[in-house]
Design a protein around this nucleic acid. Structure first.
Lengths: 210, 210
DNA sequence: ACGAGTTCTTGACAGTCGTCCAAAGAATCG
DNA sequence: CGATTCTTTGGACGACTGTCAAGAACTCGT
């Protein structure tokens, strides 16, 4: 047996390969990312991929799942640090803009992979899991927002995620099309418009059940 | 010179080729649609593509633009025929569900191409034009909705399109993942939830300017 | 320092891709 | 009808793909 348990080293290499693959995927997109190109942007040669992964599909699925890990907690700081409803909206919008600026390639990769999952079944489960995670993440923001506003939520989690995802996607597209500042400004405005719509007007006493 | 003007025949062939290409693209997605596969699903051989189009890119761009033509008027009947605000919402939701059922491959192709446009610049302009058309189409529905409700719109066109596009995309993904009925029912619910949010509570007299 | 086990490189393989081209076929004219 | 142009075919090309296997390079307990 090797000194350091070989499982860890194996997994570490896998993660390194997946990291390189994610960089390439974010740059070229799913369609044009060949295993050779992925290996070229890594310290390894193209053959090593099949030593750590059975085939390209397995690598891609691992990429998707690793991508998920960096996503799910992105706005938890906003949730934890905000003390007023209005402050949360601004902080949330700022964080959304920040992640567009810092990680645009990863975001377009996500939308690419989700679109591919409409054609290729092997991506569906992984994409669905990420969608669920993003929905839950969004919902944590909105419920905290409702708490701070002393109001109740007016829309189900899936709907809130859907509409915010729509405008985020829009902003990302605009940002990548060269209209960086306009897209970010518009996103800020849209978030401040949409967040209040997720709350019911009546703060505490709701009609209906006694 | 030929009897019937050859321009028309040339264009007719182009349209036929583009139609075949759109069917194949909707079935396989952008990444896996080769010119040979496109030609196989058409009455022609693979070489003829380069007689009517300079290269694959030109064909794809023509496909995108032809796809746009069938989109832009999809909900104009709803706008024209509805007589009440509530009726319009139901008719709109029905039409959205109908087009998911009838044209799911085309819709997933659209989201695929829009995602590709984040990587490949040559698709950007065409994708942006379609996005604008869809935004205008959505806006015609919402302004008519506001008219029928005797209210004013509360959100700008881009925001309304963004949030509706988000939930539509969600429904399409669910529909293609085997949850047909749940996805359509959810979309109906979401549309009836979101449409009222596009209107200002105050119907006629707004505060502010005299 | 040797040898066994692990890790990585390299080259080859069978396909497929977009593109091009020579030649066959079809259509239309004088 | 022959002649000219337009249309279409199918094969060929070089480049690229995922996959695999043989062997070199490395690691590490002994």
């Amino acid at each position: 047996m090797a000194r350091a348990n070989p499982i860890d080293k194996h997994d570490a290499r896998r993660r390194a390969l997946v990291d390189s693959a994610l960089r390439t995927l974010g740059e070229l997109g799913y369609a044009k990312s060949s295993l050779r190109e992925i290996a070229n942007n890594s310290p390894f040669s193209h053959g090593v991929v099949h030593y750590y992964f059975q085939n390209k599909v397995e690598l891609i699925v691992y990429c998707v799942k690793q991508y998920k890990a960096v996503c799910v907690t992105r706005y938890d700081g906003v949730v934890a640090d905000s003390t007023t409803a209005a402050g949360l909206v601004v902080a949330f919008a700022n964080k959304l803009c920040e992640t567009i600026v810092d990680e645009a390639p990863m975001h377009r990769l996500w939308y690419d992979l989700r679109a591919q999952s409409m054609f290729e079944e092997y991506l569906r489960e992984a994409a669905h899991q990420i969608d669920r995670s993003l929905e839950e993440m969004t919902w944590r923001v909105v419920t905290r927002y409702a708490d701070l506003a002393g109001a109740e939520t007016a829309l189900p989690p899936l709907t809130v995620y859907g509409m915010l995802d729509g405008v985020f996607q829009q902003a990302l597209l605009g940002y990548l099309s060269g209209q960086e500042q306009e897209a970010l400004a518009m996103l800020r405005k849209q978030v401040s418009e949409l967040m209040p719509l997720t709350l019911r007007s009546t703060p505490t006493d709701a009609p209906g059940v006694a």
